[in-house]
């Protein structure tokens, strides 16, 4: 068994966020975030609306620029002024969005094949074989030629997961990926995510599905007003919240 100190040693971290600060104009949204994630760890991020959860995730793959602090993913530091370093980092970080964001003019299969073909220069046959395998993994092997608009929300989100996986990311960011779904479709998407977690994918997921967070995550991060307010294993965090803010947040969910 590795000791706790060893487990969080810098070389064992796949995501390394240090004193990260981010403002929109005068509005400081992230006020010094420290977060270190081990490979294979599943981190659930919870917190009130506006606490900065999405902003934090979007900083990790460079969709938002931050003003201060450092961020390293899989040994690659985030460098905004270096487009190729930026793309190298993004190849390690997949992201899945609340609104699916499939490319509407491309079939399901071509949605998945686009980035591997363009970015990894994978040839057409290899990209197709991979796309078919990924579709099977998310339970949509018969949808290769379907257009996104022909799919249900749950199916679209599963395609989006397959599309992100096609780049072989080391880390997957999920921002409320079931919030836009009808309740009966939530399960099929969470099932896929749970499978990924079991297979050892590193996951950072913003979620309002507390039961899911409790079941799947290794660690829960509670964000409040731009800070990591409380953090710990799900059983502790949910079972024995230390701060008034977290207690209040959790009880607000019961209603």
């Amino acid at each position: 068994m590795p000791s706790a100190a060893e487990a969080t040693a810098p070389h064992k971290r796949i995501v390394d966020i240090n004193a990260l600060r981010k403002s929109y104009g005068d509005n400081e949204v992230l006020k010094g975030i420290d977060l270190h994630v081990r490979p294979g760890e599943v981190v659930a991020i919870i917190g009130k609306s506006g606490s900065g959860k999405s902003t934090l995730l979007r900083c990790i793959n460079g969709l938002e620029e931050f003003q201060d602090g450092g961020l390293v993913v899989d040994g690659k530091p985030l460098l905004y002024d270096n487009a190729s370093a930026m793309r190298a980092l993004r190849q390690s970080v997949g992201m899945i969005f609340q609104s699916f964001n499939l490319f509407p003019h491309l079939s399901v299969g071509r949605n998945i094949m686009l980035a591997p073909s363009l970015v990894k220069k994978r040839d057409k046959t290899a990209a197709r074989v991979q796309a078919e395998a990924l579709l099977e993994r998310v339970g949509l092997e018969d949808k290769f030629d379907a257009m996104p608009e022909q799919l249900s929300g749950g199916q679209q989100q599963r395609v989006a997961i397959a599309r992100a996986l096609a780049m072989d990311p080391k880390v997957l960011l999920c921002d409320e990926i079931t919030s836009a779904l009808d309740p009966e479709l939530v399960g099929e998407v969470l099932g896929v995510v749970e499978g990924l977690a079991k297979e050892g994918m590193t996951l950072l997921m913003v979620t309002h599905e507390m039961r899911f967070a409790r079941k799947v995550s290794d660690r829960v991060v509670f964000m409040h007003q731009g800070r990591v307010h409380e953090m710990g294993p799900p059983a502790e965090l949910f079972g024995n919240p230390q701060t008034a803010e977290l207690r209040q947040f959790l009880s607000s969910l019961q209603e």
């Binding site: 487009a83 793309r87 964001n101 490319f103 686009l114 980035a115 992100a164 780049m167």
Partner: peptide, 24 residues
């Protein structure tokens, strides 16, 4: 969101425009 999805798949700005934004 489509631009953001494409950027997060590591496409270049040019690829995002020609392959994702322009066709639809």
């Amino acid at each position: 969101g489509q631009t953001e999805a494409a950027l997060s798949l590591a496409l270049t700005r040019y690829q995002v425009f020609t392959r994702v934004v322009l066709p639809p």
